[in-house]
């Protein structure tokens, strides 16, 4: 067991190096990082040379990469070209907001997907099953940013027009109310639903087919034969085997979720990491772009590592060799 964990951790290290290299390359490919400065005509070539020396841009590319890696490892992630803030502080300041969004979305996704998945599986080929399956096909095909617009139109614009309690269109809390729990939860509903629908639709289909697959296996027949009620068979035996692979699925989905946060946080003006990245992209704020990309990728690797190890700990069938 310990060797398995150790092995997975060691495997992650070259992956992290490779990711850092890809992040570095994709920014290198973008050309002159000082473009934002050189627009200013008052800069002489001496000034530019001094700036280059300051940021280490006069060195050959491999040296630049190693320097950058050293800085990253020592927690020196640079400062924003625009706000002069420390990049690590900028990310840490917004991270809790994205985590709130993540937690609410996944609570929603797992809750709804489990209920619908179980109901459609035990009523296979019923009208309910067909309608949920049709809806989940629709959900998978929906572009999430468009869904966001439609939800804003329905719940913020129309509901207000109809005199119903409407939801806010953006932000995290009303300035007049302050950052209270009630305000934040009112504001998180629409972005969380928007982010959830596509993923939830996929999970419903996964849970349904996975329950149906499990129901055919011998251990279910044994449990039924010894007189267990079908509810007990489902919840005590089948669901264990359905839920475990979900951990891996959530881990694999994390990059998609994070991609989604860029667009959704921009639409709903949610002050999270995705919006930070997007505003940095609009201003070509390269230190912020690099840091967020690397941060997000490292989080994904760590999350998948934890999911793998958790899975191995919980499922005795996994061999640790």
């Amino acid at each position: 067991m310990r060797t398995y964990i150790l092995k997975r951790v060691i495997q992650a290290i070259p992956l992290l190096f490779l990711i850092s290299f890809i992040v570095f390359l994709s920014i290198q490919a973008t050309g002159d990082p000082l473009a934002a400065y050189t627009v200013d005509a008052s800069l002489t070539s001496d000034d530019i040379a001094r700036l280059k020396a300051k940021y280490g841009l006069d060195q050959p590319v491999p040296i630049q990469y190693l320097n950058w890696l050293k800085n990253m490892a020592t927690g020196n992630w640079g400062t924003s070209y625009f706000t002069r803030e420390d990049v690590v502080d900028m990310i840490l300041e917004r991270l809790p907001n994205t985590l709130i969004l993540f937690a609410v979305s996944y609570a929603l996704i797992l809750g709804v997907a489990l209920i619908l998945g179980i109901l459609t599986a035990i009523r296979q080929y019923s009208l309910f099953d067909y309608s949920v399956t049709a809806l989940s096909f629709l959900g998978i095909a929906t572009p999430s940013f468009w869904l966001g617009l439609m939800l804003i139109y329905l719940f913020a614009v129309r509901f207000k027009a109809w005199g119903l309690p409407s939801l806010p269109v953006g932000g995290m809390y009303d300035l007049s109310e302050g950052k209270t729990l009630a305000e934040v939860s009112r504001h998180v509903i629409l972005p969380a639903i928007t982010l959830s629908v596509v993923v939830c639709a996929r999970y419903v289909r996964y849970i349904r087919s996975s329950i149906l697959e499990q129901l055919q296996l011998d251990y279910v027949r044994t449990a039924t034969a010894k007189g267990l009620r079908s509810r007990a068979v489902l919840f005590r035996h089948v669901m264990k085997n359905v839920l475990l692979p979900l951990v891996t699925l959530v881990g694999l989905d994390l990059p998609n979720f994070l991609s989604g946060t860029i667009v959704i946080e921009s639409i709903f003006a949610w002050p999270g990491v995705g919006r930070l990245f997007w505003s940095a992209a609009e201003r070509t704020d390269i230190p912020v772009l690099m840091a967020v990309m690397l941060f997000v990728a490292v989080m994904t690797v760590l999350f998948n590592l934890i999911a793998d190890i958790f899975y191995a700990v919980v499922d005795p069938r996994i061999s640790y060799s």
Binding site: S26, A29, T30, G31, L258, G260, T284, L289, A297, V301
Partner: peptide, 21 residues
């Protein structure tokens, strides 16, 4: 693996934004 670990939209935005110039 590495490319799968970096959320696609992040690389897409960086490349189209900055190379776009």
């Amino acid at each position: 693996d590495a490319l799968l670990s970096i959320p696609t939209l992040f690389i897409l935005i960086v490349l189209t934004r900055v190379l776009g110039d």
